[in-house]
Amino acid sequence: MSSLKVIKSRIKSVGNTKKISQTMKLVSSAKYSRSQKELIQARKFGVCPKLLFDYTELQPNKSPNSQLFVAITSDRGLCGAINSDKIILVASEVGKKSLTFIDAAPKFPLYDGINDDTIDCWLEFSITTMIYWIIKESSTSEYAARMTSMENATKNASDMIKNLSLEYNRTRQAVITGELIEIISGASALK
């Protein structure tokens, strides 16, 4: 049985941790809201290349010669397993190929002729906007994951405080019971 002082110290320590995790959750919540607003704007540009391929009804090449995978992960902690989930997702995409503007150019009827400058400009624009969109998606999901992690940490701290308080009360009750037994035994011995 732990001493009352040690248990009380642990309750205070876990209480401080709970306050920190609650504050971090609130900060993440505010950052998530701001990031979500920015994501809505970025998503408009990020889906533009996808709409082009949907419009031209192109299908991806099933046997690609080469691929480039860009995994955008968080460089900060306290956000759960979000980074490992992303790495698993990237690994599962091996063998698939994205469409490019060059694939769509022959089927794109809005221009009479598409020259190399147009293709280069569109490729640069679509890659830049898709990467920006992916970074915004990653950032927003990181804040959401951190918010969830801090909520879970706060809940776990509350559970620990509840269990420690129960242990503290039981220990305190055992100490009081022991003292009462000593007093009663001493009174009986005097008679």
Rank of each mutant, 00 (worst) to 15 (best):
S3M: 07
R10W: 05
I11F: 08
N16T: 07
T17D: 13
Q22T: 09
Q22N: 13
M24T: 04
L26G: 06
S28D: 13
K31I: 01
Q36N: 13
K37Q: 13
A42R: 02
R43P: 00
K44E: 14
F45I: 00
V47F: 05
V47G: 02
F53Q: 06
D54S: 11
Y55D: 06
T56S: 08
L58S: 11
Q59Y: 08
K62S: 14
S63H: 13
Q67G: 01
L68M: 15
L68W: 08
L68T: 15
F69N: 06
V70R: 02
A71P: 00
A71K: 05
A71C: 10
T73W: 02
T73Y: 00
T73F: 02
S74Y: 02
L78V: 06
L78W: 07
S84P: 01
S84A: 10
V90Y: 01
A91E: 13
E93Y: 09
G95Y: 08
K96C: 06
K97Y: 05
L99C: 11
T100V: 11
F101L: 13
I102M: 10
P106F: 07
P109H: 10
D112F: 09
D112C: 07
C121G: 04
L123K: 10
E124V: 01
F125L: 15
T128I: 00
M130L: 04
I131H: 03
K136Y: 00
S138W: 01
S139H: 03
T140R: 03
T140F: 02
S141Y: 03
S141V: 02
A145H: 02
S149L: 01
E151Y: 04
N152L: 11
A157F: 01
D159I: 04
D159V: 03
I161G: 05
N163A: 12
N163E: 13
Y168V: 04
N169L: 12
T171Y: 04
R172M: 10
T177H: 08
G178H: 10
E179R: 12
L180S: 07
L180W: 10
A187P: 00
S188K: 15
A189C: 07
L190R: 13
L190Y: 08
